[in-house]
Computed example of a mutant assay.
Amino acid sequence: MKKIIGIVGAGNVGLSLAEALARKELDVLILSDHYLGPMPFVRRQEARAFLERCTAAIICVKDRDIREIAALLASADAEISRKPFLHTAGGLDSSALSSLRDRGASVGVMHPIQSFPMPDPKLIEGIYMGVSGDKEAVNLAEEIARALGCQIIKVKNHALYHAACVMSAGFIATLLRLAGKVLSEASDGSWRALLPLAKGTLRNVEAMGPEKATTGPQVRGDNETVRAHAEALRVFDPGLAMLYNLLSAEMTEKKEKKTLDPLLLEVLACPKCKGELEYRKDEDALICHGCRLRFRIEDGIPVMLIEEAEKF
């Protein structure tokens, strides 16, 4: 039987994947109500024909729509027993396709660790992919990864895995935006002036790894400069001062037990009443007397979640 890989959805990820597979001379069929391009496609009302023609399918839609699409495919009057289905959402495990699994399909996840601002098959070639799920589905993911020159990592916890992906993408962009905000306050420059510095850092990370590529006054032990930064940020934006101190503590990587930075204490407030907090060093805790809540401190970092606080 001729192998045809079905692509459900014609967004940036779906089209990038479909075009990348087509470039490798693999047959693809797109299921979408909106696609009008040159590759073979069918509409949603033809879901049964889509499933009958495809030997496997990859669901490339928004996270919130995956279960609905899986249910739509599962309700089509087509034989899908042992047929592999994958979805491409990093934050969801294979249970998002449980309606297909209930009908005997093999289901799993194949998440490209990449951002897709536009459809581009080059974006999906030679990257890493996070994979999990049933055996046949994982085998399909590994086969596709080999065809596209990608490497596989096996995912055990999708929430943590996806958090790591967000930290390495959206957080970097957000940090650059915030740094640009600070720079604009201090000068007539914008975030673009910081871009060569950021690019150079990423090149160093690629060449040496993140630990050796970490530089700055925190690493050099220039505490006076670090405190001057923190104080200036506290005046400008207390939230940024808190972020700066938390990241500074992580950069120093002190082996001894970390204590709460006094500058961080100055900008902290009770998340419930916004009132002042008492720092009890001997208890490793912050106390809100108004709310009668105790917030623990772990390795120098306060856990400021109301649901995690201890009542007294």
Rank of each mutant, 00 (worst) to 15 (best):
M1L: 13
K3N: 09
I5S: 10
V8Q: 06
A10Q: 03
G11I: 00
N12G: 00
V13D: 05
V13W: 04
G14T: 02
L15C: 02
S16Y: 00
E19K: 11
A22N: 13
L26D: 11
D27F: 01
L29V: 05
Y35F: 08
Y35E: 07
G37H: 03
M39H: 13
R43T: 14
R43L: 01
E46H: 09
E46R: 07
F50H: 10
L51K: 08
L51W: 05
R53H: 02
C54K: 08
C54T: 14
A57N: 12
V61W: 00
K62R: 15
D63Q: 09
I66D: 02
E68R: 15
A70T: 12
A70E: 05
A74T: 10
S75R: 15
D77M: 02
A78W: 04
A78P: 09
S81L: 09
G90V: 01
L92G: 02
L92Q: 14
L92H: 13
D93R: 07
S94G: 12
S95A: 13
L100R: 10
R101T: 04
G104M: 03
A105E: 05
M110W: 09
P112I: 00
S115V: 06
F116N: 08
I124N: 01
M129Q: 14
M129Y: 03
M129S: 12
K135F: 02
V138H: 04
V138K: 10
N139A: 13
I144M: 01
A145K: 02
R146I: 03
L148K: 02
L148M: 07
G149M: 00
Q151I: 03
I153N: 14
H158P: 11
L160Y: 12
Y161F: 14
A163D: 08
V166P: 09
G170D: 10
G170Q: 11
F171L: 15
L175Q: 10
L175D: 03
V182S: 02
L183M: 12
L183E: 07
S184R: 13
S184N: 11
W191P: 05
T201W: 00
N204E: 03
E211F: 05
K212R: 15
K212Y: 04
A213H: 05
E224H: 06
E224M: 06
V226H: 03
V226Y: 00
R227C: 01
A228N: 13
A228T: 13
A232I: 00
L233C: 07
L233Y: 03
F236L: 15
F236T: 06
M242A: 14
Y244V: 05
L246Q: 07
L247P: 08
S248V: 01
S248H: 07
T252S: 12
E253N: 14
T259M: 08
T259Q: 14
P262M: 02
L264P: 03
E266V: 01
V267N: 09
C270P: 11
K274E: 11
E276A: 11
L277T: 06
E278Y: 10
Y279F: 11
E283S: 10
D284G: 09
C288W: 02
I297H: 11
I301A: 14
M304R: 07
I306C: 13
E308N: 10
E310R: 14
K311I: 08
K311C: 04
F312A: 12
